[in-house]
Simulated scan of single mutants.
Amino acid sequence: MLETLRSLQKALQLEKLEKFRRRVSFGDLITDRWENAREYGFGEGSSCYDNVLILGDVKVGKATWIGPNVILDGLGGLVIGDHCSISSGVQIYSHDTVRRSVTLGREPIAYAPTAIADGVYIGPNSVIAKGVSIGASAVIGAMSFVNTDIPAGKKAWGCPARVMGDVDLSNVGSP
């Protein structure tokens, strides 16, 4: 049976390579990203790779793409809007154990809701700390650590992330 499974995996991997020029985990070979998102109750047209870690209360709007190897921590509440792109390796948190750890367990785990508005792009391997709100149509650069709110329509990047300018929406809707 194991040999049959390996043969099937190899055939599916070849098919994926030829069609999409990519290799994915075994789970993503045999599951559908859109079905995964539907099973989590995410909005219509959203997709979610099989290897995404989802904890607690996570709400995702419609047409949002959640890339591979993402962590969505909703233990303190996490809302992600419509038409967002959550790139590969992004980690979004709504709790931390900092105070609990440094006080040797005397302080409780800290929770705070995190919110990502509509049309937000979060670049690969970025980390969004608990309690942060990112406004509509904001862009977060790759490998950023976001520990403060980012206003709507702004570009931010770095460690820690800082607002670096406005998102150019002047040609939106133009042919």
Rank of each mutant, 00 (worst) to 15 (best):
G141Q: 00
T64I: 14
Q91C: 10
A112F: 07
G43K: 08
K154N: 14
S137D: 08
S137W: 09
N171Q: 13
A129C: 12
P151T: 06
G123C: 04
Q9C: 06
D149Y: 08
A117G: 15
Y40P: 06
N36I: 14
Y93R: 08
V120Y: 07
L17F: 07
L8S: 07
R38Y: 13
V167M: 01
Y40H: 14
I116T: 11
D32W: 05
K10S: 14
V52A: 03
E3A: 06
S137M: 08
A129V: 01
N69A: 09
K154I: 10
N36E: 09
D166F: 03
H83L: 13
V90C: 01
W34A: 07
W157I: 12
D57N: 13
P108M: 07
I109K: 13
A115D: 14
R33I: 11
S101G: 11
V167C: 04
A136I: 00
I134R: 02
S126M: 02
G165W: 03
V52P: 00
R33P: 15
L53H: 10
G61S: 11
I80E: 01
L78S: 00
T97F: 12
I134F: 01
G131M: 07
V102R: 08
K62L: 10
Q13A: 12
S25G: 12
R21A: 10
V139W: 00
I86P: 01
S85G: 10
V139C: 03
G56A: 08
I86S: 00
A142M: 05
L2E: 12
T148Q: 14
Y121F: 15
L75A: 11
L12M: 13
G61R: 12
R33F: 11
G123R: 05
F42H: 01
F42R: 05
D96V: 10
I150G: 12
V79K: 09
C159Q: 13
A138G: 04
G89K: 02
G67R: 06
A115Y: 15
R99C: 03
I122N: 09
I66Q: 03
L72I: 05
F26G: 00
G43P: 09
G76Y: 01
V139H: 04
Y93S: 12
Q13R: 10
V132D: 08
N51T: 09
G67A: 06
M1N: 05
Y111S: 14
K59T: 14
G45F: 08
K62G: 03
H83N: 14
